[in-house]
């Protein structure tokens, strides 16, 4: 069985056109939902290319932000992108955070919890570093439902190759459902747990704009796409092209849904 640890997450330049451009839209909605007061001490766990950190620097008006990710390459990418003395970047594991207890006002994680080997450990750490009455919150893609750009990919892949079903993020990441997320947060003794679907439009100029990012190799679906022979990849590409709703002008309008969850540390 392929594991999350085998997924490739190293190149910010390849990640940006694949997911980064859409995750920025989700980050904005997520922060509006949190409504955290300005001047807060933030922690962004699994910061990746810095989409959420960047949104916090803007809309969040933070006192300071610590952003952590296990990938040095991603941290370097995010650091180049977010040049702000209030932000600091650290290579660290969500399951063993280097922050003292109760030192954070708002502890967040965007599109990362499902890639952590033991999410309940990550939640215990988020709850540990957040101060009582603060905010712990996260969001993940709705892989099994309306994260359509990836859903079209795996549905087509599974119809051609039974092996693809094992890599599909939907069955691999059962925490990407509101009930599972809420349970994860409650198990970490967070109170007043709420979930929210966040839908963002993902509009592609044409099929190439949709397909090209899958050739970057970042993440499970692109990793699978680049592992195929040219012949199999072409078959997959054409299967997806046939299934996608293409508008008269050639553009493709899909929806990407993320599930957000929040709770209050006791």
């Amino acid at each position: 069985m392929p594991s999350a640890a085998a997924d490739v997450w190293a190149s910010g330049d390849a990640y940006e056109p694949y997911i980064g451009r859409w995750s920025r839209l989700v980050a904005r909605e997520f922060l509006a939902w949190l409504g955290a007061p300005p001047g807060a001490r933030w922690l962004d766990v699994g910061c990746g290319t810095g989409a959420l950190t960047e949104a916090i620097m803007g809309a969040g008006s933070p006192a300071r932000v610590q952003a952590v990710d296990p990938s040095l390459e991603y941290v370097r990418f995010a650091r180049r992108r977010v040049r702000d003395g209030r932000a600091a970047f650290i290579v660290a594991d969500a399951q063993a955070l280097p922050q003292p207890p109760r030192s954070i006002d708002v502890a967040v994680s965007g599109l990362a919890l499902n890639f952590v080997a033991r999410p309940h450990l990550a939640l215990a750490e988020l709850a540990r570093v957040a101060r009582p009455g603060g905010i712990v919150a996260a969001y993940v893609w709705d892989y099994a439902g309306r994260m359509e750009l990836i859903r079209y990919f795996w549905d087509a892949a599974a119809s051609l190759d039974p092996r693809a079903a094992e890599l599909d993020e939907a069955p691999r990441f059962p925490i990407c459902h509101p009930d599972a997320l809420a349970a994860l947060f409650r198990d970490a003794r967070l109170r007043d747990v709420e979930t929210l679907p966040i839908d963002v439009p993902t509009r592609f100029r044409d099929f190439d704009d949709y397909w090209r990012p899958f050739l970057g190799g970042q993440g499970p679906a692109p990793g699978y796409a680049v592992s195929l022979s040219d012949e199999c990849r072409t078959a997959l590409r054409e299967r997806i092209r046939a299934a996608l709703p293409v508008a008269a002008d050639g553009s493709i309008h899909l929806v990407a849904r993320a599930w957000a969850v929040r709770g209050t540390p006791a």
Binding site: R64, Q66, A88, A96, P98, Q99, P100, P101, S103
Partner: peptide, 16 residues
């Protein structure tokens, strides 16, 4: 490294 960060970080293992 950001100076304010030095005062905050703890060991990820023992939190010391």
């Amino acid at each position: 490294m950001e100076p304010w960060l030095l005062e905050i970080l703890v060991c990820p293992r023992c939190k010391g």
